[in-house]
Design a protein around this nucleic acid. Structure first.
Lengths: 343, 343
DNA sequence: GTGAAAGCGCTAACAA
DNA sequence: TTGTTAGCGCTTTCAC
């Protein structure tokens, strides 16, 4: 490969090898039909001028883009980072690449990102959508950009989806706390509810009802601004909020482990002991959950597998006989030391 | 926007509006020169057929790609996830997108990724490189794909770079331990040393020398396989290794906080108390470090700022009068409860 | 076995 | 003010 500056195309290769561009093209896509000697010369020329095929030009001729977009709440959120890693690994096996985007729970960003991705004519989009109205996603799919949902119920949409049973997750957390004897439980979530978080709250509510309690009394719904740039700090600040809002609360279920981490900090500052004074449940079971002070009771999800499955479904969309499917994972309760019977 | 299936191009818009393609193009890029009534008709047609410009075709005509590649060790590593978030946010302000890739510390993957990115004719590449030989990166840059290094000394390369002073980071960790009275310190790293990790080890060595000690006695260099899929577990397993290799070791500096997390687990299993029996220092100061059991002494780096600065430098490469620069951040020691004087 | 030519969707220079 | 035209780098017929 030479250091010749700027990029060179097939034309330069053809000139260097003394053949036509179509012969170069043949060497690249159907080497067997080219005379061995010619082929050798062309290959040598390719190395000499440092030729690399030009993706966009190939796309224009109908070769599909190797790029797949991933649209999540926040690519730095460890849960979605693992999802993306699962997507990336599955794509890599196909020579495809991951374009990762964050919405920060903002509809305008989501809209903008989808437009940008469509304009790039990506191979497809894997999205954990914010909004309830899925029209845009259906349109996108119908206009030729396959869409796979993650963390969002497929409903009656004509799309593939990979989900984790969030209602079950909420139930597991709720049942655990109820069994310990808690009768007033708070759910700490954001002001905007993406589908998975809403599902968990619903599961918690169902567990409370199933235990013969009235959610109006037993469930305190906390909706505070908990999002990307400062989730940990926001959760720490929520400690005071929770204590003043309702002193009778004896347990808090958090939207995720990161929020639980912040909340633990905030509670320490307020002099509240966990789990003696207050039980805390997280969500995700991130790698650090088991080594927090105290070790965090949480609900485990398999983010890497979710990502991998989503990529799998997306890649399958190109098949001619493709049927849209939903893959569902089950969450799992992990009991540690942040929960205990109420005082 | 209609639900008309498949994607439509300018031609369909032109037909729908009863004008030529170039008038459509004018409405899009120089609306002012088009007659108001014509413009209205064209805009209406654009919405009606759901037109979205075709990026690859525009690229072929010389419009630069909005896509920037990021090549790091592992996009799910919280440190690089934050770096990527910094990149993404800066790019978003310019309407650009982040293509995130992981090398898993493997040269062959790095090579393959760079080739793929170049083939996509991306706007540029931000890379935390594995290998010492930077020829490929220079070639890439000369062939028209700007390259910005992160976490790698710029040296005499004609490239932009964003770095954190890793030698200083290692020194800070070393000085802290030496001041506590430790005289035999282990450094836990991978078998392959990417530049930043090598720098930290070097800093530690320098601190030891500056204290008048002989690194041959005072520094135990542990090189174990510590990488992506199971870093935490590998570090946990390293506990036994450390204890058997050298019982006189009283402190361990880990390549990052995630490894420290795993090591803490492993040590607990082995019945070793931290910091009473062994002091542990991490690196990065991830959000969970301060709430681990015990709270982790570590060296803080500003990943989000590193990413943001790298994106800034990359975007600046398009300017005609561009000069390659290096931006350097300083790490900071954060003392917590995982370090104490040796017994 | 090799080359000439058309055209993918778009931009920009120029003509009308 | 609008339309015609020539390519960007590539793949793919179809002649030679």
């Amino acid at each position: 490969m030479s250091d010749r500056s700027r990029r060179s195309g097939m034309r330069e290769v053809a000139r260097a090898a003394g053949v036509s561009v179509s012969t170069v093209a043949n060497v690249l896509s159907r080497p067997s039909i080219v005379a061995p000697e010619t082929r050798r010369r062309v290959e040598e020329a390719i190395n000499r001028v440092g030729y690399v095929p030009h993706g966009p030009a190939r796309q224009l001729r109908g070769v599909p883009s190797p790029i797949v977009g991933s649209v999540t709440l926040d690519l730095a959120n460890p849960f979605y980072a693992e999802v993306n890693r699962g997507i990336e690994d599955r794509l890599a096996a196909e020579g495809c690449l991951l374009l990762a985007c964050s919405t920060d729970l903002r509809e305008d960003k989501e809209t903008r990102l989808l437009k940008l991705l469509q304009a790039q004519a990506v191979r497809g989009v894997i999205i954990s959508p914010i909004e309830v109205d899925p029209t845009r996603l259906l349109t996108l799919s119908r206009q030729g950009t396959p869409v796979v949902l993650i963390d969002h119920p497929r409903g009656d949409l004509d799309l593939c989806a990979v989900t984790v049973d969030d209602v079950l997750g909420g139930q597991l957390a709720g049942e655990h706390l109820l069994a310990l004897g808690h009768r007033r439980i708070a759910y700490l979530g954001d002001t905007v509810d993406p589908a998975p978080v809403a599902g968990r709250r619903e599961g918690l509510r169902q567990a409370i009802i199933a235990a013969g309690l009235d959610p109006a009394d037993a469930l305190l719904d906390l909706r505070l601004r908990m999002r990307p740039p400062s989730l940990v700090d926001a959760a720490a600040a929520a400690a005071r909020e929770i204590l003043s809002a309702s002193p009778e609360v004896t347990a808090v279920v958090c939207l995720n482990d990161t929020a639980a981490l912040g909340l633990l900090d905030g509670l320490e500052t307020e002099g509240v002991r966990v789990p003696q004074d207050l039980s805390i449940v997280g969500y995700d079971d991130l790698s650090f959950a088991r080594r927090l002070t105290p070790p965090l009771t949480t609900v485990r999800q398999p983010p890497y597998s979710v990502g991998k499955a989503a990529a799998e479904l997306l890649l399958a969309e190109s098949a001619p006989d493709h049927d849209h499917r939903e893959i569902r994972f089950q969450p799992e309760l992990v009991v540690r030391a942040s929960t205990a019977p109420p005082r």
